[in-house]
Design a protein around this nucleic acid. Structure first.
Lengths: 160, 160
DNA sequence: TATGAAAACCTTTTGTA
DNA sequence: TACAAAAGGTTTTCATA
């Protein structure tokens, strides 16, 4: 895990704009931050090389893809050993219902964010893919009423 | 909440490709799915209008932005009434440390995904922004050891 | 609704400071 | 490292099927 890269105001402004719309053209970006388009290109390329920008992702609406119900599953895996959790993680990641998977501290080892077609589908998922597994000791299901994405996750404006 | 749109094989293939790299050109997209570039443009525009594609987001590495430690905070808000939770949600969303916020079923009302500079910063966040608030009855902190994103969240291949 | 071709536009390279 | 301008692509429009 490397140190965080030095980011100046231009970099931060570029990141801020691209977070709002990752397809903003270099031309518009340049106009907004006050440098040349080719300079923006350089900056973005550097941010990519430096690992600050991991990629460009499409944000999809699960509901429009036939999965309007979302939930978190807290999963205890016992025994919590590498030879069991490796396959567990890969199986969960491969489920079409899985959106994200987290390995956490605390009594529940894993948190799985899932999107399903409905409660029947959720029940099937929990029973067939989780509790039926020998290594899964416990599953706790919590439905998501509503969710929000948050700000651009940027460091507070640096002193000039 | 509207029904899910009818998606044919071309739409699904386009979504699959764009999830891998949301900047794939329409020309490459067209080549891959076997239609004209202008048709791809139409398809993507339709998917956007239909709300399937919500937007294009930059995936950033919090660690490279000076926030290498991530955690989930489970928060109980009491009393759980609209006039309290509206401001609570907005305050949490405005925190630079917040990545995502979920309103859940179960004893803990909210789950906050945060990224911080370190344990000291996390402690400060919990004490100053959460437990010090009158409406916050309880906060439980779980660190994230590791996280994975999952597949493209697409419906299983439709019968032809 | 899809296409091909043309026009408009954006990206990327290059030479220079 | 940043810039301006040109070259090279891509996107988008449009007439047609």
């Amino acid at each position: 895990m490397s140190d965080s890269i030095a980011l100046d105001t231009v970099d931060l402004e570029i990141l801020r704009l691209l977070q709002n719309d990752a397809r903003t053209t270099y031309r518009d970006l340049a106009g907004a931050v006050g440098v040349a388009p080719s300079t923006c290109l350089d900056r973005v390329a550097r941010l990519r090389r430096g690992g600050v920008i991991l990629g460009h992702a499409l944000r999809l609406d699960p509901a429009r893809l036939g999965r309007p119900l979302e939930a978190f599953l807290s999963v205890q895996v016992r025994p919590h050993r590498r030879e069991l959790i490796g396959p567990f993680v890969e199986r969960v990641r491969a489920l079409p219902e899985s959106r994200a998977l987290f390995h956490l501290t605390g009594p529940d080892d894993y948190l799985v964010h899932v999107a399903v077609a409905g409660t029947a589908d959720l029940q099937r998922l929990v029973l067939d893919e989780f509790t039926s597994r020998r290594e899964v000791a416990r599953v706790e299901t919590r439905l998501i009423f509503q969710q929000w994405t948050c700000g651009p996750l940027l460091p507070p404006a640096a002193p000039s």
